[in-house]
């Protein structure tokens, strides 16, 4: 939590050690051992834990049953592949909107790293300690399957259905992977980065050219 005292103190440097989150991380590491692939802790803000793909289900079970993480916040998928359609706002890659780019930038994983194109991501919360943890796991590129959380957190049902239709990630043990938002005959997984945003192809975004010209000095400040 960011202290709100006054603007002149530098807030990000105050908290150095986050005991609660560190203890939680140690407990998770102690219980899951090898399954914890990477972690990332920002003191006073958040905790990320990346687990092995096959430990996705058991991690949730452990957190709910042993660590009293009773509240299921959400779960989703991240597609780490940069969009082959360019990054729309940057003029150089926006020139060819009707066909995918010839060379796609390197895949660049966020905090806690990663090896595969897709990562499942989920967040659970402990009401007693008021600590939340963001869990990540790689989705194997060949099977595209991870364990479902539905048996642990009933609320994961709809979130996993959404992720299934939007990214094409399969959840083993989910009671009914039906389309949630998309019509029944929809083809493709719209949230994947290589799924074109059709409105942009039909009418390319003018980008930032139609607003006032940018000043040379980027750090001008608007206060």
């Amino acid at each position: 939590m960011i202290p709100l005292s006054s603007a002149d103190t530098d807030t990000t440097e105050e908290v150095v050690v986050d005991e609660g989150r560190q203890a939680l991380l140690d407990a998770i590491r102690g219980e899951l051992g090898e399954a914890v692939v990477a972690d990332h802790l920002v003191p006073g803000q958040d905790l990320w834990v990346r687990v092995a793909s096959d430990a996705w289900g058991t991690t949730a079970e452990y957190l709910r049953e042993r660590q009293r993480f009773r509240f299921f916040s959400w779960s989703s998928v991240i597609d780490w592949k940069p969009s082959p359609w360019g990054r729309s706002q940057t003029a150089s890659v926006d020139d060819a909107p009707d066909s995918p780019l010839a060379e796609v930038p390197e895949m660049q994983h966020g905090v806690t790293g990663g090896d595969t194109r897709f990562q499942v991501i989920g967040r659970v919360h402990n009401l007693g300690t008021q600590l939340g943890v963001t869990l990540k796991a790689d989705v194997p590129d060949d099977t595209m399957t991870v364990d479902s959380w539905v048996s642990t957190y009933a609320g994961a049902d709809w979130h996993e259905r959404e992720a299934w239709e939007m990214f094409g990630v399969n959840y083993a043990g989910h009671p009914g992977l039906r389309n949630l938002y998309l019509p029944g005959d929809f083809e493709g997984n719209p949230m994947r980065k290589d799924f074109p945003l059709l409105s942009r192809l039909v009418k390319p975004w003018p980008g930032i050219v139609d607003v006032e010209p940018m000043p040379e000095n980027e750090t001008g400040g608007d206060a």
Partner: peptide, 9 residues
């Protein structure tokens, strides 16, 4: 309460 939390209410 417990059901509600598991469903993310």
């Amino acid at each position: 309460a417990d059901v509600g939390l598991a469903y993310g209410l």
